[in-house]
Design a protein around this nucleic acid. Structure first.
Length: 550
RNA sequence: GCCCCCGUAGCUCAGUUGGAUAGAGCAGCAGUUUCCUAAACUGUUGGUCGGAGGUUCGAAUCCUCUCGGGGGCACCA
C-alpha cells in the first residue's frame, strides 16, 4: 500500500466512524497550489447530503477522528467550502522513493489486466504505397498503448492487418502493369483509380529486371504478388526505422483463402439478421444501433463481391477465437463508421462476444504543412509526406514525442519545417536532458547509479520546496500510468514527463548533490536516482530513448 | 438532413471525468554561468475557456440550443 492509499484508507475509516456508508471512497487530489498542502480531498462536501451536516462541520469531525500521525500527516486544514488540505511530513513523503529504488523494473507497473490477452491492431495499411504521416500517428499511438497495457498487467500482441485483397489491390496490379508496359515503350496509361506514385515505376523496373519472361507485363497475378511483396517490405522497413515491432501479421487475403469469409456469411445468414433486396445481401445492422442497414454482398450487377466490412467481421471473429478477450483497434477517425458495423456483425453472430468488442481508439487526421502550405495527401496523385521523411528530418524520438504529446482526439498539424527548425528546442530534448543530467551526476561523481540504495539514508533532509515538489511529482507516476492505461491515452505520460522534467531541472539548478555534507549528498543521490529511473520509465513507455548524456 | 471529434493566452496544446485565484511549452520582455551539462534556471506580459440559457454548494468539464473547423453518413476500402 502506498502513501496515498494509506491516507485514503484512513480517511475512509474516519468517515465511517462518523456514519458514512461502508463503501465510502474518498478521492485525493493534488491541490492546484502547493501552498495548500500535499493532498486535498472534497470528502466532506460529498458526505454533506448523506450525513445531513454542513461540509465544514464534517471536515472538522474528520480531522478529529483521523489518526493523522499514522499516515504521515503533520497538518490538516479546512479551506473554502469544505476542502480538507493535508500536509505530509517531508521525510515520510520521501519514503515513497524507497519503492522506486527497491525494484525499479516493477515501479509504476500494476495489474489491471490479470494476464488476460489483448490484441492491439494498428497501422493496418493497404500495401499500396509507403506509410504516410497518418500511419505514423497510429504507429506511435498503437505502440505506446500496447506498452501501457503491458505495464498494467495485460498480455499484449501487436498486430498489423494487411488489406491485401479487394479493389485497391487490383488497382495496384493494373497500375504496375501500366508502368511495366511504359518501360517496354508503350505510352503510359494509368488506369482509372490507379496509383500515380513514383514508387510504382520503381517497382515496375524491378519487376522487369527479375521477370524477363513477362517483360510485356501480361501476368496480372504475378504483378500483383510482386508489387504487394515489395510494398509490404517497404512498410516493414518504415516501421523498423520507427522502432515499432509487431508480434503478428494478419492477411486479409487469408480470410478468403481459408474460407472464413464464406463461413462468416453463412453464419450471419443462419442468425436470421440478413435479408435480400435489389439482388444484394444486407445485414440488418439497425438492430444493433446502426442508423442504416448495410450491404454485405453486392448485387450481380455490381460485381457480386463482398463489401469490406464482411472480411472485417470475419477477421474480428478470429481475434476472439485466437483467445483475445480484449481487442483494441487504433484507427483514423475516417473509419468511424466501421466501429458500429463491425460490432453489429459480431453481435449478430451471437457467439458470446461482448457488445463493446473491439475497443476503438480513433485519432483525428494529421495534416502536413510544408513550405507554409498544406500538403495534400493522396497516394494516387503521388503527393504525400511519408513517415520515413519525418524520421529522417526530425529524428525518431522527436517524431514519436510530437505524435504522442497530444490527445488523439485533437487534429494534429505537423509542420515539417517547424519540427525540423525547432529540433533543438523541442520538448523531447527538454525531457531527455533531465534524464541526462541525472545520469551526469553519477558519472561525474564516479558512482555506479545502480548501487544507490535508500537503506539507512535519512530522507527527511529532502525538505527544500524544490525537493518536495520533485518527490511528489515522481510519486504520481503510478497513478498516471493507471489513468493513461485505463483511458488508452499515452499523452498523459507525455504530460507527466514534461512536468517531471521541469521539477527535475529546477531542483538540479537550485541544489547541488555532490560536494554537500554527507547526509545531504546521500539523500539527494537517492532523489537523483529516483528521478533518473522515473523519467527513464516514462520515456520507454512512449518508445523513446533515455540518453545518459547529450 | 443525420452521426462523431474539436473550439481554452499571439501560436501549439494540457486541464487528473464537477472543485479552490484556469495551466504549460513556444513566441515577447527583463535577468542568471569561477557551481554535478546554459539543450538549463528565475521573474514578467498575455484569458468573456466560441456564444446563450440550464442543472447545484460549485461548471472549461454535465444537459439544451447556437456559431465555427474537421471527419463520416456508397452495392469504395
Amino acid at each position: 500500500m502506498n502513501q496515498a492509499e494509506a491516507l485514503r484508507a484512513e480517511l475512509a475509516r474516519a468517515a465511517r466512524s462518523l456514519g458514512a456508508p461502508d463503501d465510502v471512497a474518498p478521492i485525493l487530489e493534488r491541490p492546484r497550489d502547493p501552498s495548500f498542502g500535499d493532498w486535498a480531498t472534497n470528502l466532506a462536501m460529498t458526505l454533506s447530503k448523506s450525513l445531513g451536516k454542513k461540509p465544514r462541520d464534517i471536515a472538522e469531525a474528520l480531522i478529529v477522528a483521523m489518526d493523522q500521525a499514522s499516515v504521515g500527516v503533520v497538518s490538516a486544514e479546512i479551506a473554502g467550502p469544505g476542502f480538507l488540505n493535508f500536509r505530509l511530513d517531508a521525510g515520510f513523503q520521501a519514503q515513497g522513493l524507497l519503492q522506486i529504488l527497491a525494484d525499479p523494473d516493477q515501479w509504476g507497473r500494476l495489474d489491471l489486466g490479470h494476464g488476460e490477452r489483448v490484441v492491439v491492431e494498428f497501422v493496418s495499411a493497404n500495401p499500396t504505397g509507403p506509410l504516410h504521416v497518418g500511419h505514423g500517428r497510429q504507429a506511435a499511438l498503437g505502440d505506446a498503448i500496447s506498452t501501457l497495457l503491458e505495464w498494467t498487467g495485460w498480455q499484449v500482441d501487436r498486430e498489423f492487418y494487411y488489406n491485401d485483397a479487394g479493389a485497391q489491390i487490383a488497382n495496384l496490379a493494373k497500375s504496375t502493369q501500366a508502368q511495366v508496359r511504359a518501360i517496354g515503350g508503350q505510352p503510359l496509361i494509368i488506369p482509372e483509380g490507379g496509383y500515380h506514385g513514383e514508387y510504382i515505376r520503381e517497382i515496375a523496373g524491378r519487376y522487369v529486371a527479375e521477370h524477363p519472361e513477362d517483360a510485356a507485363g501480361n501476368d496480372l497475378g504475378a504483378l500483383q504478388q510482386f508489387a504487394v511483396a515489395a510494398l509490404r517490405h517497404e512498410q516493414d522497413l518504415d516501421m523498423q526505422a520507427f522502432g515499432v515491432k509487431f508480434d503478428t501479421y494478419y492477411l486479409e487475403s487469408s480470410l478468403y483463402d481459408n474460407g472464413r469469409v464464406a463461413r462468416t456469411v453463412e453464419a450471419l445468414q443462419a442468425s436470421g439478421h440478413t435479408f435480400e433486396e435489389d439482388g444484394a445481401l444486407f445485414l440488418r445492422t439497425t438492430t444493433f444501433g446502426d442508423d442504416k442497414d448495410r450491404v454485405m454482398k453486392k448485387s450481380a450487377a455490381k460485381g457480386g463481391d463482398y463489401t469490406y466490412f464482411v472480411p472485417d467481421v470475419a477477421y474480428h471473429v478470429t481475434k476472439w477465437e485466437r483467445g483475445y478477450t480484449r481487442a483494441v483497434n487504433v484507427q483514423g477517425a475516417d473509419h468511424h463508421s466501421t466501429t458500429t458495423r463491425v460490432r453489429a456483425g459480431l453481435q449478430a453472430l451471437g457467439i458470446g462476444i461482448p457488445a463493446h468488442y473491439p475497443d476503438y481508439v480513433l485519432h483525428q487526421m494529421v495534416t502536413v504543412m510544408k513550405g507554409g502550405e498544406e500538403v495534400k495527401i493522396s497516394k494516387r496523385a503521388g503527393s504525400y509526406v511519408t513517415v520515413r521523411d519525418l524520421i529522417d528530418e526530425v529524428g525518431r524520438d522527436a517524431v514519436r514525442y510530437f505524435y504522442l504529446m497530444r490527445k488523439g482526439d485533437s487534429q494534429l498539424v505537423f509542420d515539417v519545417d517547424l519540427a525540423r527548425s525547432q529540433s533543438e528546442e523541442n520538448p523531447v530534448y527538454y525531457v531527455q536532458m533531465a534524464h541526462a543530467r541525472m545520469s551526469g551526476i553519477f558519472r561525474v561523481g564516479g558512482i555506479d547509479a545502480t548501487t544507490i540504495s535508500a537503506e539507512g539514508v535519512d530522507l527527511g533532509v529532502l525538505s527544500e520546496p524544490a525537493e518536495r515538489e520533485l518527490v511528489k511529482q515522481l510519486l504520481d507516476f503510478p497513478a498516471t500510468v493507471k489513468g493513461a492505461s485505463e483511458h488508452l491515452e499515452p499523452h498523459r505520460i507525455a504530460s507527466w514527463l514534461l512536468e517531471t522534467a521541469r521539477a527535475g531541472h529546477t531542483w538540479y539548478h537550485k541544489h547541488h548533490v555532490l560536494g554537500e555534507p554527507e547526509a545531504i549528498t546521500r539523500a539527494r543521490l537517492v532523489l537523483a536516482r529516483a528521478t533518473q529511473l522515473g523519467i527513464g520509465a516514462g520515456l520507454r513507455i512512449l518508445g523513446l530513448s533515455a540518453p545518459e548524456r547529450m
